[in-house]
Write a protein that binds this DNA or RNA. Structure first.
Length: 646
RNA sequence: GCCACUGUAGCUUAGUUGGUAGAGCACCUGAUUCGUAAUCAGGAGGUCGGGAGUUCAAGUCUCCCCAGUGGCUCCA
């Protein structure tokens, strides 16, 4: 007999060798929804036999843990279908991911039609209700099972002997190397859909085999799957490229070149509002502003270390009669020279130099994406020159400033990442292990003291120092860096940064903090558009008031209202065309003005305006002066909420 | 850069097995002067992403480019 405790239940006695599944069925019923179980803290199949006293927790299909098991089993199902249809295809790895799964195969590329065919075969396998069974092998026989799949053999070479277990899972004729657990039968995998294919390299190594990756989504219920499909549809409406087109914000023309966006008049307004806000904020935080050239000589970028470490990210040089010039990919080297331009005193530190500098980066063409990834970008850049003792306070201030920004812009979904060097990557990082360790420990201590939560990631540092990145999850579910705070220990030597300290001695211990809390104009605007679905707060809206006349009788009054709004600095436009009112409202909706101002006989008579909000709600008969005062206040406060209409 | 998919008017798109490019919105003109998500009529707008090729004939088939999208890699 074995004694089993499960959930909140008291211990029960069962015959030794009883399966976890039977115990769970006994306690929760046959339709419990359990897909696997934690037995003494280890994930197990439901078929797992209990041979000793155990503590069991059922893993339900709709739990986070359970979904990953479903998705993992779904990946196997995909591999089974693919190998049945394409016997030459070699499965490699197929993990569960958020919302679903993928599986990488060595095979010929598949298109949409093939995807549907594979999906159909998967559904067929579900109907067959194939049992998914765990099989244990010793190392040699396991190698035999996968003798014709070099990828699986390579995995074994790496993992076996490292206490990973040598198990495989079988469903019908298909066997896959896997530690499990899995659901008990293919019939439990109903709510999935193959979504896309892409290319991936074996072991993410571009020198290795190119594989076909097939993505799918998978849920534990029809509702889950439908909800996800609906979400994807909703998200498509927030696509910044679509909204940018509707609002006439920016364009990218292939004749100019890809990754080189043009800010149209409306987009320029949005961009300058953000910039103006940053200028005000940085002034309050004690920054000074400079402007530096877009070109610099080769020697500058050799001094900074960018050419040895970052040459791929820069445009090739231009040959001039007095040497080679590079388009700058970053502002820092020039700011360093601003620092050394005069003899600095300890009284000047921290010196905070800011610039909205446009830089050019030679991104691989395949990585470009709308405004999120461009080749010409304008950073909300600044460099803080300070002593090691001042770093903590400066980093704290930058984090505080960043959080203030994100609050005003209504961006809530972000987290901190401590980005560390990779000691094994000698190419990417300058080779000063002692400095790396010291600055990393220093940054970690600072961020710990600040009490903000963060994750650590190796190999994400800048080449000259560790950084704290702020990772933002866009409304479309992409994760991107919105801010970066980098601690540079290399610049002081490379540029000979120094200051006179209190004792009258030259002190070369100058640390540089590179920071860009508002990312780049391009990326930040994309974030904002997706976050707000283009319905920006009034202060950011390119059109703050769109006047619409009811008939041509009201043209004159429209000009009067326009004048009153313009006098208060409100961005206003008038539509006094001879279209119907319904037509005009419909037309202007896509431009997303903060408010529509409707003018007809009633308004003329009362000297009033009627205000229509984006949600269709309306307030009629608002005295003109009141509206002007209210919208002016809303803009001045940089209010997130449009409060003039309930 | 690599892989896949996509590419018809400013936007959204129809176009069967190869047989003269269709539409809606937007735009222009005229009529209409209207109270909340499309007033009516007319007009103009396309070397079907570009270039080769196969064919009597190519938006449709083949190849090479270019661009977009999704991934890989990279990264603000």
């Amino acid at each position: 007999m074995v004694s089993v405790s499960i959930g909140e239940e008291e211990n029960h006695e069962y015959a030794s060798g009883i399966s976890v599944g039977e115990v769970i069925a006994n306690v929760y019923g046959k339709k419990s929804g359990a897909v696997a179980a934690n037995v003494d803290g280890e994930q197990r199949d439901l078929s797992f036999a209990l041979e000793r006293d155990s503590r069991v927790e059922a893993i339900m299909g709709n739990s986070e843990e359970g979904l990953y098991i479903l998705r993992h089993s779904c990946a196997h199902l995909l591999a089974q279908a693919v190998t049945e249809i394409y016997p030459d295809a070699k499965p490699t790895i197929g993990p569960p991911i958020e919302h679903g799964f993928y599986y990488d195969f060595l095979m010929d590329p598949v298109g949409d039609d093939e995807l549907r065919k594979i999906e159909k075969r998967m559904k067929g396998l579900v109907k067959q209700n194939l049992a998914i069974e765990r099989e244990e092998y010793d190392n040699d026989s396991l190698r035999e099972v996968f003798a014709n799949n070099p990828f699986k053999l390579e995995i074994m070479d790496d993992k076996l002997g490292h206490d990973v277990g040598s198990s495989a899972y079988r469903q019908g004729d298909f066997v896959d190397l896997c530690r499990g657990p899995h659901v008990a039968s293919t019939s439990l995998l109903r709510w999935f859909k193959l979504t896309s294919t892409s290319q991936a390299y074996w072991r993410a190594d571009r020198e290795r085999e190119s594989l076909v990756r097939i993505y799918g989504m998978c849920y534990s219920s029809k509702e889950g799957l439908k909800e996800r499909e609906r979400h994807i549809q909703e998200a498509a409406k927030r696509d910044h490229k679509k909204i940018g087109r509707e609002m006439d914000l920016f364009m990218i023309d292939e004749l100019i070149g890809k990754g080189l966006p043009v800010w149209l008049p409306n987009g320029e307004i949005l961009k300058s509002e953000i910039e103006q806000f940053a200028i005000e904020t940085e002034e309050a935080y004690g920054y000074v502003r400079v402007t530096t050239p877009v070109l610099g000589k080769r020697e500058l970028f050799e001094t900074s270390g960018h050419l040895p470490h970052y040459a791929d990210g820069m445009y090739p040089p231009m040959e001039m009669d007095d040497g080679e010039y590079y388009l700058k990919a970053m502002n820092c080297p020039m700011h360093h020279l601003v620092f050394t331009n005069s003899k600095r005193s300890y009284r000047e530190l921290p010196l905070r130099i800011a610039e909205y500098g446009t830089v050019y980066r030679n991104e691989l063409s395949g990585t470009l994406s709308g405004m999120l990834r461009v080749r010409m970008l304008t950073m909300n850049d600044a460099h803080v020159y300070c002593t090691l003792e001042q770093v903590a306070e400066e980093v704290g201030a930058i984090i505080r400033m960043s959080e203030e920004y994100y609050d005003v812009f209504g961006m809530g979904d972000y987290y901190y990442r401590l980005s560390l060097w990779d000691p094994n990557d000698k190419e990417k990082y300058i080779d000063q292990p002692k400095n790396w360790k010291a600055t990393q420990d220093h940054l970690r201590r600072i961020i710990d003291d600040l009490g903000v939560k963060y994750v650590e990631e190796t190999g994400e540092a800048a080449f000259y120092g560790p950084k704290i990145d702020i990772q933002y999850r866009t409304a479309l579910g992409r994760e991107e860096s919105v801010a970066t705070i980098q601690l540079d220990f290399a610049a002081k030597e490379r540029f000979g940064l120094s200051f006179m300290d209190e004792t009258g001695n030259e002190n070369g211990e100058v640390f540089v903090i590179h920071r860009a809390p508002l990312s780049t104009h391009e990326r930040f605007v994309a974030f904002l558009l997706e976050e707000w679905t283009g319905n920006l707060p009034t202060w950011l809206s390119p059109i703050q008031a769109q006047i619409i006349t009811i008939s041509e009788k009201h043209k004159e009054y429209a000009q009067e209202v326009r004048g009153a709004l313009e006098l208060a600095g409100i961005r206003v436009r008038v539509d006094d065309s001879d279209n119907t009112i319904g037509k005009k409202i419909r037309t202007h909706r896509k431009m997303r003005p903060a408010y529509m101002v409707i003018l007809g006989d009633d308004e003329v008579k009362d000297g009033a305006v009627s205000i229509r909000a984006r949600n269709g709600n309306q307030r009629n008969g608002v005295p003109l002066e009141e509206f002007v005062a209210d919208i002016f206040a809303e803009i001045s406060n940089r209010s997130k909420h449009l409060s003039i209409v309930e």
